[in-house]
Each structure stands twice: as C-alpha cells, then as structure tokens.
C-alpha cells in the first residue's frame, strides 16, 4: 500500500525532524560548540512547529491592504510568538558563544568530557576534597592536557 504523502505530513515531519535531529545532536556531540549548534537546530524545529500552528489554507498574511472586506488571513498570534522565540534564541546563542570563548581560553579545549573532568577537578579542589572518579573517563589516571601559559589569565579568578 502506498501511503499518500500530503503537504502537511511533509511540514510536520520537517518540524519534528529538526527537533529530533537537534536533540540527538545535543546528546551525541562530544564538542560543546556543536552542542550549541544542535540546540539552534532544535529551536528552529520548535519555531516551525509554532508557525504551522497558525497556518491556514487559502489565506494571506495578516496585513490589511484594503479597507473594508479582506480575504481570510492566517493567525497572527503564532507569528508574533515566533518573532519573540527567535529573538530569545539569538540572545541565548550569543551568550553561549561568549561563554564558550572563555572556556576555550581557560581550559584550552571544548571537548565535553575533558571540560567536565576539569570542572569536577576544580570543584573538588576548591572544596578541598578528594575527587570522585569521573563517570566518563576510564579508570586510572589520565593526565590532563596542560593549559598553554598564554591563555591563563586571572580576570574573575576566584581564590
């Protein structure tokens, strides 16, 4: 049996597919920057889903061009919401990138497991307790790659 592929199926598949690809990307990536990018993809999917919520066949954009009678228009509310959601997304992405720049400068890497390992080490160090063995690293000692001197700096550093 040949399933009939309708336009709506394609659109919904695209939106939900983007969300799934994005979420899978966040879970699977080993690199923090890729995780942030994957998040952007998932966000695009959610926004598309929101736009689809207001779509109407045979309708025009919700802008009055003539006084009096006007053709049917699509729902304006989801469009306003998507505008809001996109701007929110931009703000968060910009903040994420600036934090990533700092992490790259401090740790010299953006590899997820290495960053987590260093973070755990640092937390344990400030609390002066022996460190738990990280769940993501193999048992036994693994030397941490050294931080290049030039990237170590003290701004905001906490004693």
């Amino acid at each position: 049996m040949m399933p009939d592929i309708s336009l709506e199926l394609i659109l919904y598949t695209t939106a939900l597919g983007l969300i799934s690809i994005g979420l899978a990307g966040v879970v699977l990536s080993r690199h923090l920057f890729r995780m942030v990018l994957a998040l952007g993809i998932a966000e695009a999917g959610a926004n598309l889903m929101l736009v689809l919520a207001g779509y109407r066949w045979d309708a025009v954009a919700p802008i009055l061009t003539t006084l009096g009678e006007h053709p049917p228009m699509v729902d304006p509310v989801p469009q306003a919401m998507v505008l809001t959601a996109i701007v929110i997304g931009v703000g968060i992405q910009a903040l994420a990138v600036s934090i990533l720049i700092r992490i790259r400068q401090r740790y010299g890497t953006l590899d997820r497991s290495q960053v987590v390992e260093r973070m755990d080490a640092e937390i344990a160090d400030t609390a002066s307790i022996p460190r738990d063995v990280s769940q993501e690293s193999p048992l036994g000692e693994r030397p941490l790659p050294s931080i290049p001197d030039s990237t170590v700096e003290i701004r905001g550093g906490h004693s």
Partner: peptide, 15 residues
C-alpha cells in the same frame, strides 16, 4: 494595518 504588529506591541506587549 499590520496585525502582527498589533499583537506584538498591543495584545502581547508584555511579551
């Protein structure tokens, strides 16, 4: 005349 603008700044202005 742009109804999206009415929503963005009026009905959902606090958003």
């Amino acid at each position: 005349t742009n109804i999206v603008t009415s929503v963005v700044l009026g009905y959902r202005g606090i958003d």
